[in-house]
């Protein structure tokens, strides 16, 4: 049994969806809450105030070191950022109206490479290249975070949590139905 502290419980009228590592979700449902827990991973939250639609992604790594040998898949921000932006566009959002929140990118283990810092740097650069302003950011440090985002309102809440809340952060195996398949007409 997992006890959810009362201060993060969801009111009965709200529906909570967890954005797992390797996922992106977009919603215009005013009762929807997107939530995730981050260590070195990054969650990007986008919001279009006119369409009242928002979304969140959750990625493990920025981009592959060698795209010629590696599949650019759900583990990478370079893919999940595009999925999130396109999901927003599909809901009627415009890139020129989008606003971003950025969370995560902690360096939890002092002896390991600073993956969190690299992830946060990548996300900031991506948003800058796309012309999407960051309205709130809480990245870096050494502590895990929990993020709750109401996509239809553009409201985010980010709090520090104990490290043992973090799910196992490893590259995900590719699904059986491999993307990248080619269909010739």
């Amino acid at each position: 049994m997992i006890h959810v502290p009362s201060h993060i419980q969801t009111p009965a009228t709200m529906s909570r969806a967890t954005v797992m590592q390797g996922q992106a979700q977009v919603s215009a449902d005013p009762n929807r809450v997107l939530t995730t827990i981050l260590g070195s991973c990054i969650a990007t939250c986008l919001y279009d105030p006119r369409m009242r639609v928002g979304g969140m992604n959750h990625f493990l790594l920025a981009e592959p070191q060698n795209a010629g040998k590696t599949t650019v898949d759900e583990n990478y921000g370079v893919y999940l950022m595009e999925v999130l932006v396109n999901g927003m566009l599909a809901h009627g959002a415009r890139k020129s109206r989008m606003r971003a929140h950025l969370y995560g990118g902690a360096n939890l283990h002092s002896g390991m490479s600073r993956i969190g810092t690299a992830n946060a740097g990548f996300a900031r650069q991506f948003l800058q290249n796309e012309g999407i302003p960051i309205v709130h950011m809480d990245v870096g440090g050494v502590q895990a975070r929990r993020v709750d985002f109401r996509p239809a309102h553009g409201q985010a809440r980010c709090r520090a949590v104990e490290d043992n809340f973090i799910p196992n952060q490893k590259p995900m195996p590719r699904p059986q139905k491999a993307a990248g398949d080619v269909e010739l007409f």
């Binding site: 010629g68 040998k69 491999a178 993307a179 080619v182 269909e183 010739l184």
Partner: peptide, 28 residues
């Protein structure tokens, strides 16, 4: 990254030769 049948059909109708859904596999 689009995977909807409607958009794929629209691309085909416009004259696309093929359709590949990201994430891409370099060898494929």
């Amino acid at each position: 990254t689009e995977s909807s049948d409607e958009k794929k059909a629209r691309a085909r109708s416009a004259g696309a030769t093929g359709w590949i859904v990201k994430p891409f596999d370099a060898e494929k």
